[in-house]
Amino acid sequence: MAETVLDLREARLVLEGSAGPLEILKGITLSAVRGDSLGLVGPSGSGKSSLLMLMGGLERATSGQVIALGHDLTQMDEDALARFRRNNMGIVFQSFHLIPTMTALENVAIPLELAGVPDAFDRARRELEAMGLGRRTGHYPSQLSGGEQQRVALARAAAPRPAILLADEPTGNLDAATGETIMDLLFDLRDRHGSTLVLVTHADELTRRCDRVVRLADGALVAEPAGPAARVAE
């Protein structure tokens, strides 16, 4: 039986706004097993990115449970969440979030050094080479194209060999050809490391490649087509 890696149980997210409480997510129940690829789709403002943030412990559920690798993230303090993410998760955003004063190699090596990996720079170099950036390791983000910066971000997320890989619109800032390359690299990472991949996307090309696709609308889960060929129209 496949191992359940992510398990959300009636997870709700309510944020305080100027006009009072705003319910962002409304009782989400959803799970993903090891090696699964899960696409989150829906219109802007439907709660896709917020759901991804709950899965990564970057937002705390107001009620319900968010269980990752058997650990309830809603019961952890910020320090414990940071350690858990460092050791078990890779997160890729639409904006690359690279440190501008560090080279590509240094950006990828940072999470490994923080985790105490003894060969941090060697492993970082190998991940960059796997991304086709072997000759760009000494370049700073400002010296790289958007596609190259996203590949550095992917290498940084993948270098710790995470059990869970979360991606929020990873091709959103890229042209079609570069976006296709990033798609290939994402699924290659999933295959190489056996990670569970969860991604937020508006790209039909990405949803077609996911094992499962779920749709959100107004903070609620409204559909979950089955099968690797599942496609949800935007």
Rank of each mutant, 00 (worst) to 15 (best):
R192L: 08
T62R: 05
T181N: 12
A153E: 12
L8R: 00
E23R: 02
L216K: 05
K26A: 07
L73E: 08
P100D: 07
R208V: 15
A153Q: 15
Q149C: 10
L166R: 04
R190F: 07
L51I: 01
V108S: 01
Q65W: 11
H71C: 14
R135F: 04
V14C: 08
D122N: 12
P170M: 15
K48I: 01
L112P: 02
L30H: 06
V14L: 09
R60I: 06
A104V: 02
K48T: 03
K48A: 00
L13P: 04
E59D: 15
E205F: 13
L81I: 06
L144N: 05
E169Y: 01
I28V: 13
A115M: 10
I28Q: 00
P160V: 10
A68M: 00
G56N: 13
H193G: 15
G20E: 05
D204Q: 12
A223G: 11
D7A: 07
V214R: 11
G172I: 04
D7W: 12
G147H: 07
L216Y: 03
R190W: 02
D36S: 08
V33G: 14
E234I: 09
H202E: 06
G56F: 06
Q150E: 03
G134Y: 00
F96Y: 08
E59R: 14
R209Q: 08
D211F: 03
F121D: 13
G116E: 02
S50I: 02
D191R: 15
G57M: 13
N88E: 05
L52N: 06
S46C: 03
D79Y: 09
L185V: 08
L40V: 04
M76E: 08
A120D: 01
M55W: 04
Q150I: 06
A11M: 11
L197I: 10
A19S: 09
I164D: 11
T178S: 12
V66W: 03
R151Y: 14
M53I: 07
V108W: 02
S145Y: 04
L216W: 10
E106N: 00
A220M: 06
G47N: 00
S142A: 13
T171E: 14
V92A: 06
C210K: 07
I99S: 06
L199I: 03
I110Q: 14
A203Y: 02
R190Y: 05
S46Q: 09
E205H: 14
S95F: 11
E16Q: 11
A223C: 10
I110F: 09
A167L: 01
A177C: 11
A80C: 09
T196V: 06
